[in-house]
Every structure is written in C-alpha cells, then in structure tokens.
Amino acid sequence: MDHLFAKFATAISHATGSPLTFIVCVVAVVLWAIAGPFFGFSETWQLVINTGTTIITFLMVFLIQNTQNRDSAALQTKLDEIIRSSDAHDQFMGIETMTDKELEELHEKCEREAKRSQMMLEKTHAERRTRKSRKH
C-alpha cells in the first residue's frame, strides 16, 4: 500500500507541477469567470469555484507533504552517507532529530568555524600578495 501511494503521490505531484496543468487551471478559472454573467454571479456560481479549489487544495496538501517527506528523507540519507564515508564530523549525522535549540547551537558553531576559516584564507591570500610584491 505504501509503495502504491508513493508512486501515486509522485506521479500526481509531477503532473500538477507541469506547465500544462497550470494552463488548464488558468483556462478553467477564465471560463468560470466568463460564465459569471450568464449565471448572474449567483451563489451557486461562486460555490462551484470555491468548492472545487477547496477540495483540490485539501487533497494536494497531503500529496505534496508525502512527496516532500520522502524527498527530504532521501536527501538526508544521502547526506548522512556522504558524511559517514568522508572525513566530515560524524556529529552532523542525524541532526534532523535535534531540538531547535541544539540546531541553533550547532549552526552558531559552524558559523564561527566558517568565519575563522575565512579569516585564515584571507590571511593566506594577503601573505601571497606580499610575497609576490617583494619578488618584483
């Protein structure tokens, strides 16, 4: 059942994200708007578009969320494998399960390390420029 739903959700997500689907929806809204005067802009006329868009939106939320969850899990698994098989710090594996506070602390630590690395890089570039200017 899960596999079938995953295939269905992926197919629907791809189909609804296509330019053709967008054009079809725009045409449907334009036709609905054009039909307004013929129906006297009645409550029934308004109810048609409101009901249709509400139902589609309601169902799409679940399909998109399912697809997003699977894509996110796949991406996280790939990143974990890269971390595991490289010289990267293992502390980054599984960070998606950390609390917001723990994530913020890790983010701040990474920012500090990035600034330190940037300063070292700038220092190295400056030293190289100094050496080049002394040679000439």
Results as ranks from 00 to 15, higher is better:
Asn50Met: 05
Thr51Gln: 10
Gly52Asn: 15
Thr53Val: 15
Thr54Phe: 14
Thr54Cys: 04
Thr54Met: 07
Ile55Trp: 14
Ile56Tyr: 12
Thr57Ala: 12
Thr57Asn: 07
Leu59Ile: 08
Met60Asp: 12
Val61Ile: 11
Phe62Ile: 03
Leu63Lys: 07
Ile64Ala: 06
Ile64Met: 10
Asn66Val: 05
Thr67Met: 07
Gln68Lys: 13
Gln68Cys: 05
Gln68Arg: 12
Gln68Tyr: 12
Asn69Glu: 12
Arg70Val: 06
Arg70Leu: 02
Arg70Asp: 05
Asp71Lys: 14
Asp71Tyr: 13
Asp71Ser: 15
Ser72Asn: 15
Ser72Cys: 15
Ala73Tyr: 13
Gln76Arg: 09
Gln76Lys: 08
Thr77Lys: 14
Thr77Asn: 11
Lys78Thr: 09
Lys78Trp: 08
Asp80Ala: 10
Asp80Cys: 01
Glu81Trp: 14
Glu81Cys: 13
Glu81Pro: 03
Ile82Tyr: 05
Ile82Leu: 04
Ile82Cys: 02
Ile83Gly: 01
Ile83Asp: 01
Arg84Asp: 01
Arg84Tyr: 00
Ser85Asn: 13
Ser86Thr: 06
Asp87Lys: 15
Asp87Gly: 15
Asp87Asn: 15
Ala88Val: 04
Ala88His: 09
Ala88Arg: 11
His89Gln: 12
His89Phe: 02
His89Met: 03
Asp90Arg: 11
Asp90Gln: 08
Phe92Ser: 01
Phe92Ile: 02
Phe92Trp: 13
Phe92Met: 04
Gly94Phe: 03
Glu96His: 04
Glu96Lys: 02
Glu96Met: 06
Thr97Asp: 04
Met98Leu: 06
Met98Gln: 05
Thr99Ser: 03
Thr99Cys: 00
Asp100Ile: 02
Asp100Lys: 07
Glu104Phe: 10
Glu105Arg: 13
Glu105Tyr: 11
Leu106Tyr: 00
His107Gln: 11
His107Ala: 05
Glu108Thr: 05
Glu108Ile: 06
Lys109Ala: 03
Cys110Trp: 03
Glu111Ala: 08
Arg112Ile: 08
Arg112Val: 09
Arg112Gly: 02
Ala114Lys: 10
Ala114Glu: 06
Ala114Arg: 13
Lys115Gln: 06
Lys115Phe: 04
Arg116Gly: 10
Met119Arg: 14
Met120Lys: 14
Leu121Lys: 11
Leu121Asn: 06
Glu122Lys: 07
Glu122Gly: 02
Thr124Arg: 13
Thr124Val: 07
Thr124Ser: 12
Thr124Ala: 11
His125Ile: 07
His125Val: 06
Ala126Gly: 02
Ala126Cys: 06
